[in-house]
């Protein structure tokens, strides 16, 4: 693998050589997480915060996360900006660093993010020095609000959470890539490496993939596949795709022929 050392993704002052973000949810066993981190090459991994159940002994997911990983706690479970802010502060107090993925969902049928509450939480947390990565619909107006609110990146969904349906919001994500100066990280919906590759070819800064790796038949192999797909897509984006030939050579110039005699 030829390394492109000039192509680091810098977020919140952290320089990343891998553009695949992974998660810790939905694994059959958390003990496989270190192997997935290794095979995928990912350097950023999400975790969630939940109330402790004192009646049931649950394992501590943190002990399975390799030390070199950049932790990205999410605010899943938050139904509004206030709850997201509380969760973010708790995550920081727990020694998780300053990164926070804002995820505010109050619609449990579709699990779609609430852009207005997300922008509010982003503004508050950015002012408190967090590196804020908000998860939102692929919507230009929301993305602009997030830029103004001080977000470090914008994470539009490719399809509803956990749906593995691919880049359904492709045209909208393309608009964000064209118009928003922050890194655009496609989060949610990506079900196959080819879809992650497609997002990267378009110019996405990174992809966050959890379910498609964790719930696959072989998470270690699938993590590797996603890592390679994201690298391939990024390399293709940097190389700039060649023109597609129409296959018909046309000697006439219907639109510019009038210039011929000049």
């Amino acid at each position: 693998m030829e390394a492109n050392n000039n192509d680091a993704l810098v977020i919140g002052g952290v320089s990343l050589t891998s553009r695949l973000f992974t998660g810790t949810g939905k694994y059959g066993s958390d003990t496989i997480i270190p192997d997935v981190c290794a095979s995928s090459g990912s350097q950023v991994i999400t975790v969630a915060l939940r109330r402790v159940d004192t009646n049931a002994a649950t394992g501590n997911v943190m002990q399975h996360i390799p030390k070199h990983m950049q932790l990205l706690p999410n605010t899943s479970g938050a139904r509004n900006a206030d709850e997201a802010v509380r969760i973010a502060r708790l995550a920081r107090a727990a020694g998780c660093g300053d990164w926070i993925k804002i995820e505010v969902i109050s619609d449990n049928k579709y699990l779609l993010p609430d852009g207005y509450e997300t922008a509010k939480a982003t503004e508050i947390l950015a002012k408190e020095g967090f590196t804020v990565l908000p998860y939102v619909n692929a919507d230009l107006y929301i993305a602009r609000d997030l830029v103004n609110a001080g977000a470090a990146a914008v994470m539009p969904l490719g399809a509803p959470i956990g749906s593995n349906r691919g880049l359904k919001t492709k045209e909208m994500v393309r608009i964000l890539i064209d118009e928003i100066s922050l890194p655009i990280i496609v989060d949610a919906g990506i079900g196959a490496p080819s879809q992650a590759c497609e997002a990267m070819e378009m110019g996405a800064a990174a992809c966050l993939v959890n379910t498609a790796i964790a719930a696959s038949g072989d998470p270690v192999a699938m993590g590797r596949a996603f890592g390679e797909a994201v690298r391939a897509g990024r390399a293709a984006y940097l190389a700039q795709t060649a023109a597609v030939s129409t296959g018909t050579a046309d000697a006439s110039s219907p639109l510019t022929g009038f210039l011929g005699g000049m």
């Binding site: 998660g23 810790t24 649950t58 943190m62 708790l90 949610a188």
Partner: peptide, 10 residues
């Protein structure tokens, strides 16, 4: 009191 711990999440 709210007592929370990290769990798996995406």
């Amino acid at each position: 009191l709210e007592i929370l711990q990290f769990v798996g999440g995406g």
